[in-house]
Design a protein around this nucleic acid. Structure first.
Lengths: 192, 192
DNA sequence: TCTTTTCTTGAACGTTTGCTCAACAATCGA
DNA sequence: TCGATTGTTGAGCAAACGTTCAAGAAAAGA
């Protein structure tokens, strides 16, 4: 009972995510968030409790909307090695030269680091989603003789996640897609 | 003529660097800097003009003291492939589990990105110092038949810088040295 | 010694920060 | 229709922010 909210929560989270992604947690003010969501402070605090509460919800939204979508593709494509290739290709192609925002997990990891466990948990959960998907596809690839049997799938999966983080850092810095392509290609080449 | 400063500038820069490195640019307040340096605001502004001026000087100090030291080692060790191995080994070994601060270039790159050209320039300059050193050692390694001649030194150098960035991101998140060692080892393995 | 220049001090400035809350509006069950 | 409940509003709070500046202290040249 009572009055019902006037906003769609996913719409708000999408908008908040956009600002946090581009500016980082600390450099995003409540005023920025009010403008982006068209909500008054009272509504935001009523719905999310605090700036950090909204950030956590936006981070969850990122994992659900961005990371999980990418991971789904990674798991859906038939050929496991092609799936991994597609993951890196589509990642670096998604980088928009007009808005260098990189990856929200990467940005948050380096900004907040291990100083906030609520945030840290979410980043590690997001990254291990990716790592787990890499590992299962690499193991599958070995079964199909698409990857040398003497390689260690667990080890390579972590390596690929790290390569992805590297790509995200450089992707926040440069508009030069050629350099991003080289990085992406070399990450894949290291599986050979 | 006139009164001479009461502080050693390198001492101040080292202290300011420490706070900026651990907390990032935005999350370091002037009060933090005053406490770390034991300087009063007037002295800081007299010497550096602004918080950003001090940050730029601290960033330059980081490149000079931390990056250049590492690059020197990278260029000094006789065997070029061993030099690269040493770079990664000593990097991940330098990560302190009690203070996860990663790499200041990486942290600043993801925090500020391309939104401030003064800062961006310095990050790119620092990273290309590393990249250039990698490339010259890789080329040298090819001349000595320590690296396959069909590899592209320029390409691999960029790949290694990206791997280093990935290591720095994970190194800001986790205390688990085994995982960092895997990442470091795999970066090296991708040269084989 | 005295003037000039430079550096230090610390109180205080105007903004912006994240956040609160009393008043009002809308929707529900009875 | 009418309380009960929940959502929205926007003025305004205390604290923290980066920064300034008049006053005083120290060193250098004359």
């Amino acid at each position: 009972m009572g009055r019902s909210p006037e906003f769609e929560i996913d719409d708000i989270l999408g908008k908040a995510m956009g600002v946090f992604w581009a500016n980082g947690y600390r450099d995003t003010s409540m005023t920025d968030l009010e403008n982006a969501t068209s909500l008054r402070p009272g509504s935001i605090y009523h719905a999310f409790g605090s700036k950090k509460g909204l950030f956590l919800a936006a981070l969850d939204h990122y994992v659900k909307q961005v990371v999980d979508t990418r991971v789904s593709h990674l798991l859906e494509i038939d050929n496991p090695m092609e799936a991994i290739e597609d993951f890196f290709r589509s990642t670096f192609e998604a980088f928009n030269p007009d808005q260098l925002i990189g990856c929200m997990l990467t940005n948050t990891a380096t900004e907040v680091g291990a100083t906030d466990s609520d945030i840290q948990e979410r980043i590690e959960a997001g990254l291990s989603r990716i790592e787990g998907a890499f590992e299962s596809r690499l193991t599958e690839a070995q079964g199909k003789n698409l990857l040398a049997a003497d390689k260690n799938a667990k080890t390579l999966a972590l390596h690929l996640v790290s390569c992805y983080q590297g790509l995200a850092v450089i992707g926040r810095l440069t508009r030069d897609k050629d350099r991003l392509r080289v990085i992406s290609d070399q990450a894949l080449a290291s599986l050979k």
